[in-house]
Computed example of a mutant assay.
Amino acid sequence: MPSPQDIIVVGAGIIGASIAWHLTRKGASVTVIAAKAGGEATPSSFAWINASWGNPEFYFHFRRRSMAEWSRLATDLPGLPLSWCGGLCWDLPEAELEAYAARQRGWGYGIKRIDRETSAALEPNLANPPAFALHVAEEGAVEPVAAANLLLEDAARHGATLSYGTAVKRLLRENGRITGVETTGGVLLSDHVVLAAGAGTAALAASVGTDVPIETPPGLIVHSRPSLRLLNGLVMAPELHMRQTMEGRVIAGSDFGGTDPGEKPQEAADELFAKVKATLRGGDKLELDFYTIGYRPTPKDGFPIIGGVDGAPGLYLAVLHSGVTLAPLVGSVAAAEIVGGDPDPQLAPFRLSRFAPTSE
């Protein structure tokens, strides 16, 4: 029986946690290296699980498959803080909402047009329910840091090593192959290195001459103190996206990814939170606890970068903005590719090689 592959996963956010968990389930010897459990971008995520928002059909179906993977993961990992609470949306003009709904329905999404009465029944604490909105009952949310920690703790029970408080300085290469990492605590060798380090991915890949074209736009999210239940599901109103966490915090951004807070983030947070309070009956009792500014690792064409790297065998990349929606599917397919060695055709649109310059 062959010895298990030694695999280093750099990053302990929701993507790194999912990949590490799936790798341990396939018998790999896994070491996770990160500054802290939960990562950097994951704590600032709105954590909406969906296949919405203007995606082309191939990406819609990839996201839809990952929604189903969340249900599978919840079966395998009891206690996963996952809720299929549904999403209510009216943040586009009516004609655009109608066109969007028609397309998504044509692809099989369970999207319904609803009126003011139904909106009010779904979300009775809206101060001004919309006369026209869309509702998708199959959308949901997860508490992302708690989910990442649950995955990592279970991976550790199955033999993974969790190395927190450690920074990776660079990747190591020998005879053309990536052989490990140099960290602030020394050198660690492996058969494969997985970069799931979010905004830090580009700099680490550059240490072995690999260009990963990502942007890291900031996104402001406000977090209330825990309160009585004011929201039943996800609410996407014009310039205000909200949900209530399992511990009772109302979290909100100007959109689901948050927007740039500018030079005065506290003022931007106060203004955004005032809008939250005005939108909800009983919102006057909400208190702002804190705000986060997340830097979302977004490949320049908007689609994930997943897979091995031509010219750097032993290196595997997993960098994407829709990390919460895609985490369980990416973890599953990445682990299968790394351990099995066979490329997965469904990942073909997401390879780094698509950014390679083409000759005229």
Rank of each mutant, 00 (worst) to 15 (best):
P218L: 10
V193L: 13
V181S: 08
G219V: 04
G219T: 09
E182R: 11
I178T: 15
L220P: 15
V194E: 11
D191M: 08
P213H: 00
D191E: 06
V208F: 09
G185M: 00
G185L: 01
E182W: 14
E174I: 00
P213M: 00
N175H: 14
A203G: 02
V208T: 13
G186A: 09
L188W: 04
H223G: 02
I221K: 03
R173L: 14
A197D: 04
G180E: 06
D211E: 14
T210V: 15
L172H: 06
G200Y: 06
V212N: 01
I221H: 08
D191L: 12
I221V: 15
T179E: 02
D191Q: 05
G186I: 07
D211K: 00
G185E: 14
R173T: 15
P217R: 07
G200A: 05
S224V: 12
L195K: 03
R177G: 07
A206L: 14
V193R: 01
L220W: 04
T179K: 02
A199F: 01
S224G: 13
L172K: 11
V212I: 12
V194P: 10
A205M: 09
H223A: 02
A203P: 01
A199P: 02
G219E: 02
L220N: 10
I178L: 12
V208L: 04
I221M: 14
T201H: 01
P217K: 01
I221Y: 04
L188E: 09
T184V: 07
L204D: 06
A202Q: 13
S224D: 04
T210H: 04
L188G: 01
D191V: 10
V212S: 02
G180Q: 07
L171G: 07
V181T: 01
T184S: 15
I178N: 02
P218Q: 06
S190Q: 01
T183V: 11
H223S: 03
A203Y: 02
R225M: 09
T179I: 15
A199V: 13
E182D: 12
I214G: 06
P218C: 05
G209N: 09
T201R: 02
H192A: 09
L189S: 10
G209H: 08
